[in-house]
Amino acid sequence: MSDRRELPADLLGEHLRTLRQAAATGLPPGRAELDAYRAAGSRAAELGLPLRTLVDAALAAADGLTAPAVLPALRKAVSALMEGYDQAQLAAIRGADVERREFVDDLLQGRAERLAERAEHFGLRLAESYVVAVAGGLRDVDPDRIERDLIARFGSHNILLAVRASDGDELLVCVVPATLPAAVGEFTHHVRSRFPTGWRVGVGRPHRGPGGVVTSYREAAGALDLADRLDLKHDVVKAADLLVFPVLLRDRSAIDDLVTSVLSPLLDARGGPEPLLETLEAVFAAQGNQTAAARRLGISTRAVTYRLQRIRHLTGFSPDDPTQRFTLETAVLGARLLSWPS
């Protein structure tokens, strides 16, 4: 609505009378009049009228009134109109934020009440496949700015961003269509540029429907948890790359037995098992290259060789033997998952 004649007739019904009274008496609008202007501004916002249309109408009403007191009165009137308009806009935004948070909570927890209807309000088509990315380490970051930047590139119907509490931490959750893999990369870019040190992004696999969003979210959050427990150095961890670990954890007694049987001799090592476990992790990460492993650890290649000899002597397993290497690597991963030996 760009024409002032489209304003409801009663919206500024008392405005001209107020200006004429100011012209006659020299007095500005009183508290009651200003409250009425604020209410009019608020109503205009709720009706979806442009602020410019409202202000133009208020200014046009002063045409022909030349008394010196009219201009100060007009300024107060327009200021009150704008104040009421802004307050209504702010209340609407806050209400939308609450609605969005409630929707995200219901969606990620699988509460199905009116999900499809509410999802349509946010532009989500729940029959499609979606990917969920989760960023941890959220501190003193404005998620609204990240959301605005993502929406500017991909459109509001393709992005759903929300902050969600999880186990005493705050996670920034991003839900995007699986057909837009670039959106996950862009989300990670904004997290990298705006989060403080210590951030990490977990990415779930694509799944279809409302239940698929829940599954992808749990995978992404689980990837963050596994990365922390395994002390992974990667900033971005994908659930698809960590599928072996849920398999290991399904049989807790078996992995516990493997860790105990293979690694318990390391408890007798001088300095404890930790330096030897770190050495094995570095060697496995370097594909068996001891020189590269030494650089990762910040020690000499000779020290790595000595530690591997100690491991072979204590456990009877050698990382140079393919079968024994697999057993050792699985046991080390299991030790990290179980926080062994603590």
Results as ranks from 00 to 15, higher is better:
Q287M: 03
L34Q: 12
A24G: 09
F122S: 02
R270C: 00
A133E: 08
R310T: 15
L138M: 13
D167K: 12
N289H: 09
E6H: 11
T301V: 12
L266Q: 06
G155Y: 06
G110Q: 13
A269V: 11
D56C: 02
D106T: 07
R52P: 00
D321A: 14
T323C: 01
A92R: 14
V175L: 12
V131G: 07
T197W: 03
V98F: 09
H207P: 00
V141A: 11
L160F: 03
G26V: 10
A178C: 09
A239N: 06
R325A: 15
A293S: 08
E120F: 05
D10W: 03
A88V: 09
A67M: 04
S253Y: 06
V259E: 09
L172W: 04
E278A: 14
T66W: 07
L27C: 02
V244Q: 12
A293P: 01
T179D: 12
S261I: 00
F195G: 02
D256P: 01
I255F: 02
A36F: 01
L150P: 01
P319G: 08
V213I: 15
D225P: 00
R296T: 15
S264W: 02
P29K: 04
A165C: 00
G110I: 10
L172K: 04
S42W: 02
D105K: 10
S156K: 13
R17I: 03
D167R: 14
S166E: 15
L180N: 10
L161F: 04
V78T: 14
A36V: 03
G13N: 06
K233Y: 00
T315K: 10
P68M: 03
T279P: 04
A182F: 03
R100I: 06
P196Q: 11
A182L: 14
R302G: 09
E120H: 13
L337I: 05
V173T: 08
V98H: 12
